[in-house]
Simulated scan of single mutants.
Amino acid sequence: MKKILALAAVATVALSSCSLYGTRSAAVSGQLKGFSPNQNLGLAIVGFNNGQYTADGTQAQVIDKFLTGGYTLTLPRDVPYGTYRVIVFRDANNDGRFNTGDTVLSRDNGKFLVYVQRDNQYFNGTKYGWNIYNAANRDIQTTILNNYDLEAVAAQ
């Protein structure tokens, strides 16, 4: 069992630091806390601009009604440059996508996924490709994109 856990940890780090077609990092990982299973939970990367989530059906998503524990999610290369968030949502219509009517079940963790075309494009310290920007302390992760933990809102 310990060997399997160690292998999973190494795989997560390897995925987080790999490069695909010029993007610096191709995966984000974190822990999921407080989510109840059996709810048609989904995990999605959605645009986040001007305080609004943007869903156009092209972002990477994982649907698993037993979604609990940790996750590693591959980041897309075919999205516009900008700010994004990973969310947990209830897939109410069972279509396998985050839609405007679906309920977001995760709290705002104060972090943005930032996809930039050039260094320092949106926030000082970001590097070409995917980054994590922590608004609370203005910290930027540019290589290994981990600790993007998601916590459930109080009422599910």
Rank of each mutant, 00 (worst) to 15 (best):
N120M: 01
S36K: 14
F48T: 02
L67Q: 07
V79I: 14
F35N: 01
A92K: 14
D64V: 04
N109H: 06
V153P: 01
R118E: 11
Y21K: 13
L41R: 06
N40L: 13
I87R: 09
V86Y: 02
S17K: 10
T126A: 04
V104A: 07
D108F: 02
S25R: 00
Y148M: 06
T58C: 04
V88F: 02
L105F: 09
L7K: 15
R97E: 05
I4C: 03
V153N: 08
G30S: 05
Y21L: 12
V116R: 04
G30I: 02
G82E: 07
D102F: 08
L73H: 07
R90G: 10
I132S: 00
A14D: 02
S36F: 05
Q61H: 11
L15S: 07
Q39K: 15
K65M: 09
R107Q: 14
C18G: 03
D119A: 14
K2F: 07
T142I: 12
G125P: 03
N94K: 15
V62I: 15
L150Q: 00
G69V: 10
K127P: 00
L15C: 08
T72Q: 06
P37C: 01
S25D: 01
L32M: 06
K65S: 15
T74F: 09
L15Y: 04
N40T: 12
L105N: 06
G101H: 12
C18M: 13
Q31Y: 05
D119G: 08
D119P: 10
Q59S: 13
L105I: 11
I132L: 03
A9F: 07
V116A: 15
G101T: 11
G51V: 11
E151I: 14
